[in-house]
């Protein structure tokens, strides 16, 4: 019989003490998800399209200076501020805990991006183009978004679906570690851990128990499904406790 998949809640843990800001996740995501090549103009106009990006910020000044890296991606919020403002229901929450963006529904109002406190959404201001030969690389599992469409991190839903189908073909449930999103798979320091938080034995559940755990802009009540583990710095200056 057809069965709706077991109830799931996909989560990711980002360990900022492991993250080195090396950008492997960023490029892996570009490759996996058919994200348009960011040209100079994308960056100059603040319209660079990255589903996961690494923000760098400074603390202090020479010689006592620190640079911090935080990977940002769609937080897949339980109370996602982007969802209620979409006039065409192109973004909604599904029963896997994913904040889904339906490209064929999107009409490009960009209300969702304005309402996202994490700047996690990218808008296709231009028709994506690739040199003809490079189109051979495009992932057939992922829709190429045209101009005027909003897009964002999907937790590599195409990999989730592939893993589900493979499990179905083998007559079993999806197991922890069957697949990872492209960013987590590439991450050389294993700073990104992904899995189903409803599975008590999953690695993501284990990682999320850390005492360093916090979520971005938790005070907004967005209930993000991306959990951050704070950077440890024995020499932190003026580090206040997290509110």
């Amino acid at each position: 019989m057809v069965s709706t998949p077991r109830e799931r809640k996909w989560q990711m843990v980002v360990d900022m003490d492991r993250c080195t800001g090396c950008q492997a996740c960023v490029v892996a995501c570009q490759v996996e998800n058919n994200i348009p090549i960011n040209s100079e103009s994308h960056y100059q106009q603040g319209r660079a399209m990255q589903w996961i990006r690494i923000e760098r910020y400074w603390e202090g000044e020479f010689p006592n200076v620190k640079a911090r890296f935080i990977p940002f991606l769609c937080q897949q919020c339980n109370n996602a501020p982007c969802e209620p403002v979409c006039p065409v229901f192109a973004t909604y929450h599904n029963n896997e805990g994913l904040n889904v963006q339906v490209y064929n529904r999107c009409v490009g109002t960009r209300f969702c991006a304005n309402n996202c406190p994490y700047h996690a959404r990218s808008f296709n201001f231009w028709e994506p183009v690739w040199p003809e030969a490079m189109r051979n690389q495009l992932n057939p599992d992922v829709t190429v978004r045209s101009r005027g469409i909003m897009e964002k991190c999907t937790f590599c839903i195409q990999r989730i679906r592939r893993a589900e189908l493979d499990a179905k073909r083998e007559g079993r449930e999806v197991r922890d570690g069957d697949f990872q999103p492209a960013c987590a798979q590439a991450c050389p320091t294993s700073a990104l851990v992904f899995g189903d938080s409803k599975d008590p034995a999953s690695r993501v559940n284990e990682a999320a128990k850390s005492s360093r755990r916090f979520r971005l802009r938790e005070e907004l009540g967005t209930e993000p499904n991306v959990i951050y583990l704070s950077k440890v710095d024995p020499e932190a200056r003026g580090a206040a406790g997290h509110a």
Partner: peptide, 13 residues
């Protein structure tokens, strides 16, 4: 009719 998944993200991604 067949009680299958009707989530948008079942087919659109």
């Amino acid at each position: 009719q067949n009680n299958a998944y009707t989530d948008c993200a079942a087919c659109h991604y």
